[in-house]
Amino acid sequence: MAQHQVNYTQDGGLPVALTTIDKVVNWGRSNSLWALTYGLACCGIEMMASGASRYDFDRFGTIFRASPRQADVLIIAGTLTKKHAEFIKRLYDQMTEPRWVISMGSCANTGGMFNTYATVQGADRIVPVDLYLPGCAPRPETLQYGVMLLQKKIRSEKAIKAQKPKRLL
């Protein structure tokens, strides 16, 4: 038995508040952002460098997974060609909610220098994008900063409320 008195009503309420659950869930979500191993072109090299020991993404809890079913964030690193567009859509659909998309590099943002018939002019024509990283290619620091911004965004979201599924259509 407790030897001291616990006053559950002091400080305006019970010791468990809903915001705490939000915080705990978002803490878990934002600090274990598993990304899909998905390098499409030269930007993929920078993404690999970010994951390797020098820039060390593991300390953000961002570990690259080889399956979309285990991934929370899709980093579109590189040129998205029209032939590949349907595959990125399929991979995105296989990821479980909640999921986020980072478009890395000018190619994924707008088609970049490939202003041609064969390149999708911006990955946001296919999947909804949360963050656009500028650069050709963005430095690993940019990607790290992008992941930190995404973490910030996740922390400011409501965790419990059913998330509105992000779909283009």
Binding site: E86, K89, T116, Y117, I126
Partner: peptide, 19 residues
């Protein structure tokens, strides 16, 4: 004769195919 930015088919290829 093929335009660099693609013809009508190429411009809408991914949209037509996916959505």
């Amino acid at each position: 004769t093929y335009p660099l930015h693609g013809d009508e088919f190429a411009a809408w290829y991914e949209v037509d195919k996916i959505f």
